[in-house]
Design a protein around this nucleic acid. Structure first.
Lengths: 331, 331
DNA sequence: TTGTATGCGTTATCAA
DNA sequence: TTGATAACGCATACAA
């Protein structure tokens, strides 16, 4: 079933059928109707591959993320997909994990499928080792690359990210001004955004000559029980506030507080990050920094669409975060 | 940059280049090396579109789900993608929402992109109104259709699902045998799996001549606070156990218990569904029915691969669930 | 072992 | 307003 079958059925040439399919002008109403009828009768569906081969665009965007089951990333993917759809694009999803040579293979795969652009979701795509990002720069020679929540300079590379530095800096400053002195920072990642958060924490404390107190959590967010046990074991001197780079760590911190008998929020303030569903599942519910996934994704797509339409001017967009106060703080 | 450029560079014909790319035999080592070198130097990436057009397969599977940000669906998508990847397929993701005419459009879109099969994730693709499923049967005439957690009879339609009926039936039977009489069932969906769960509940109670006590929750799982308020308002006579069709509803039930002063698990047992991350976030942690997403997804892909390779024999696979006991029950 | 020529299903250019 | 035909980049049957 192809355009020839339709053309025969309608008694016109394939060029005319193509014109009707693409809503080109210069087709008489009568002919158009004949063609549309034939399409209907034959239940003809155009072959997007052949079309893509001709016009050299599949109207498809590649999306790479480390792990699509992560709550934050899943949300991002959802918003990206919806937003792309509005512009007539759909997406090929790749869960790449964290190894850069594997990521490079996925990138090649996407390019071979002639995607119009590639979106890298999550700040873990920004690596310490610059050599591990070479594949990104290479890909950018062929199609626009968009980083969601990462920052990377380069020709044809675009970034949309939350202002994690400011968010943590402001939060800590506020807590200090309310009289809290011993602020603890708990983190599980040295990704780009992880470092931004940490820097915000450190700078805020430095402003008040306070000593930083940081704890690296060597488990992933699914292991709330393990994280809790780890905190119980590591934290002997109780802080006045625990700033966590993930809601899951904040939940574990809350369990730690319960375990050691600290009253939250009176004796201990706890702040999570992402303002995800799990922030609303504990008791008291988590105060959490909302890093505005949807806004970040929307502006990523907006930037990308500008580029694809040739109006590319900006190449970075920073979205402010928002502190959602709930029961684990009181200030 | 195409196969002709490579052939010129290597001083061979395009047929030979094609053979090298596809690892076909009958190419001398010397020639093969020449070609590989040329590919390397030119940084040539084959065009999968052109290839797909010729052999009529893009090695791509379409995945449709209502909402990729839902924890359960996000997990399923993650496992499906990983599993497909192992077989050399990648996937186009479509978040379709719940309206069947929009879903039909997505299906057409996927077919136009020449996907090799379509996977429908989530039991909401099985509709009350059979007419709303016609587009699935039509699509099945062209490519295999796989339902994940849904059941639908039809030519070229395959199903992999969790045994939700048995899971709830067994759980309720067990609770009754432990002396619980007033079991309450809370649900928010009349999807296929929703009905299976409900039927399991009703049948278990019927076996012991107990009167069912069901509450429909008219909010989605993000609104834990609203769900809790609704439960507080609706439930006057306190049950001995609350069986919930979603972990989020179970979390809300736990908050309800706290609010009205019921001790969990001594006065009230609570059981969630999905055994998701949020089950571990509350205190006490949720007992939850694990519906084995990964197994369900893996067997879906296994079935599909058999079909695509022409060994299609089975067309349905039912995976047993597993009760993960935690702090909200004690039996 | 290698090369030539054709087809895959479109779009687009040009001519009618 | 319509039609014939050449691309698009590759795989493959067939010939050499």
């Amino acid at each position: 079933m192809n355009i020839y079958d339709v053309s025969k059925r309608a008694g016109v040439s394939i060029a005319t059928v193509s014109r009707v399919i693409n809503n080109s002008e210069g087709v008489s109403e009568k002919t158009r109707k004949k063609v549309l009828d034939a399409i209907e009768e034959l239940e003809y569906i155009p072959n997007a591959l052949a079309r893509g081969l001709g016009i050299n665009s599949m109207k498809t965007i590649g999306i790479m993320c480390a792990n699509a089951s992560d709550i934050y990333l899943a949300n991002a993917i959802y918003h990206l997909e919806s937003s792309l759809r509005k512009f007539g694009y759909d997406c090929i999803l790749c869960c790449t994990g964290y190894e850069s040579d594997i990521r490079e293979k996925y990138m090649t795969l996407l390019l071979s499928k002639q995607v119009d652009a590639v979106i890298l979701v999550g700040s873990n795509y920004v690596e310490e080792d610059v050599a591990k990002q070479e594949y990104i720069h290479n890909a950018a020679k062929k199609v626009p690359i968009v980083l969601v929540n990462g920052q990377l300079e380069g020709e044809n590379i675009y970034c949309s990210l939350a202002d994690d530095y400011q968010a943590v800096f402001q939060l800590c400053t506020q807590l200090i001004q309310k009289g809290k002195k011993n602020l603890m920072f708990l983190y599980d990642s040295n990704s780009f955004s992880g470092k931004q958060k940490r820097q915000g924490y450190e700078d805020a404390l430095k402003n008040y000559n306070l000593k930083p107190n940081q704890l690296f959590i060597p488990f992933d967010e699914d292991n709330i029980q393990k994280i809790k046990d780890f905190i119980v074991q590591e934290v002997r001197e109780y802080p006045e506030a625990m700033i966590c780079c993930e809601d899951a760590i904040a939940v574990a911190s809350l369990k730690f507080a319960t375990k050691v008998g600290l009253d939250v929020p009176n004796q201990l303030h706890i702040v999570g990050y992402n303002n995800s569903l799990i922030a609303k599942c504990c008791e008291p519910e988590l105060t959490s920094i909302d890093n505005k996934v949807q806004e970040v994704c929307d502006s990523a797509i907006k930037m990308l669409m500008n580029v694809l339409e040739g109006n590319g001017n900006e190449n970075i967009k920073v979205v402010p975060c928002f502190l959602k106060q709930r029961g684990t703080t009181d200030f």
